[in-house]
Design a protein around this nucleic acid. Structure first.
Lengths: 139, 139
DNA sequence: CTAGGAGCTGGAGCCGACTCCAGGTCAACC
DNA sequence: GGTTGACCTGGAGTCGGCTCCAGCTCCTAG
């Protein structure tokens, strides 16, 4: 009594995870769901909070560039339960490496951009000044 | 006298930039070169140090997820020369936003991974300990 | 009872960014 | 002068990751 968990429609899950319904069905086909989706009597998917939680993790992993096959593999291991911790750990550590590489790359890019932004800002200031002093007045 | 700049083949440029020769030709078609590539009498591309420098910048921008059309636009502005600084600045600032968003995302992912790695390491330690004490001996 | 909206399926389509192919040219060395 | 090996071209193919389509079934509200 009162312990009846509601169950979520695909549309609600889409809204909560930020994925489209298309993508949710696609992920399901791809095996990116910790447990099989149940269906209501009409054949519609019924999701639960755990699914949303898991998908949220997947969104984060995908957002950091983990390829779908890796996400699938990780999902399989989680589904398989105990005894797979070592491989899960390895998978995550490998991805951590990729993430850190990306951060380095982004940092390098940020440095470049900041440098160039400085250059352009100076150039524009210069223009503003010279036109104000008449050095280059009216062109 | 000694000021004769050698000129680089597409293969050499590929090696220096880390791009493939395919990609170099592709980028050229896409208008991602600050100045038009010259050709030797045999019709082969002759690159110079500036080209390598520019391509290096492009590699960094692409590596941080700037879409090719944006790189092309930036290239066009550089080619057009003076008077385009404001737009170049805008382009770079927009991209800086994207880069910073990505870093946030990666950081979130890193936090998640670090948390989970911790969990799995503990789980594995636990296994090691219990098997050593015989709590779960032989399995 | 009917109109609308959300869901269902299998399969096709799309997009960005390469990547490769076939068939040919050219320069250099043996 | 023949054989490599790097280069050339236009166009086709690939890959990852969605995204959409057609044609159907439900459920609910009016």
């Amino acid at each position: 009594m009162s312990g009846v968990v509601p169950g979520l429609s695909i549309g609600e899950v889409a809204e909560r995870t930020g994925l489209s319904v298309h993508t949710l069905r696609f992920y399901e086909r791809e095996g990116i769901l910790a447990n099989p989706v149940r269906r209501d009597p009409g054949g519609r998917r019924v999701y639960h909070e755990d699914d949303v939680d898991w998908l949220t993790v997947c969104v984060i992993l995908r957002g950091s560039g983990m390829p779908l096959p890796a996400v699938r593999r990780y999902t399989e291991l989680v589904r398989a339960g105990g005894g797979t911790e070592a491989e899960r750990l390895a998978l995550l550590q490998e991805h951590r490496g990729r993430v850190m590489d990306q951060m380095d790359q982004l940092q390098k890019c940020l440095d470049l951009i900041n440098f160039k932004v400085g250059v352009y800002e100076d150039a524009l200031d210069q223009l503003a000044v010279s036109s104000a002093t008449g050095t280059d007045a009216g062109r």
